Amino acid sequence: METIHLRHPYQSTAHLDSPIVVALGFFDGVHLGHIGVLENAKRLAEQQGAQLGIMTFYPHPKEVLGKQPEAFRYLTPIPEKLSLFEQHGIDKAFIVEFTPEFASLSKEAFLDEILSPLCVTGVSTGFNFTFGRYATGTPDDLQVLGKNRFETVTVPPIMQQDQPISSSRIRAALSNGEIALARDMLGRPYRVKGNVIPGDQRGRLLGFPTANIRLEQPYYYPKLGVYIVDVWVPDLQLRSFGIMNVGIRPTFTHTEPDIRIEVHLLVQDLDLYGKELVVDLLHFLREEQRFPSFEHLKTQINQDRKTADDWIKQEAQANKQVPFQIY
Rank of each mutant, 00 (worst) to 15 (best):
K320G: 08
D17H: 14
I179T: 09
R171A: 06
T13L: 12
K313Y: 09
L65Y: 12
P198M: 00
G132E: 05
T299Q: 13
I4S: 14
L32S: 03
G33L: 01
A173D: 14
D304S: 02
D230I: 03
K313N: 09
T307P: 00
V155E: 00
A180S: 12
R202N: 09
L181P: 01
A211M: 01
L206P: 04
P292W: 08
Q160S: 15
A71Q: 13
I179L: 10
F98L: 04
F72H: 07
A93N: 06
N148M: 05
L16T: 15
T3R: 08
A14R: 01
R183H: 11
P79G: 00
E113Q: 15
Y219F: 13
F26H: 10
A211G: 01
P292S: 11
D271A: 15
F208I: 05
E2S: 11
L205H: 10
A109I: 00
D304W: 02
T56F: 03
E80R: 07
P156Y: 04
A211W: 01
L24G: 00
I261L: 14
G194W: 04
P79W: 00
I20E: 05
D184P: 04
D230P: 02
L181E: 14
R286K: 12
A318L: 13
Q201W: 02
F85G: 06
A180D: 12
A211Y: 06
Y134V: 11
P100M: 03
V196M: 11
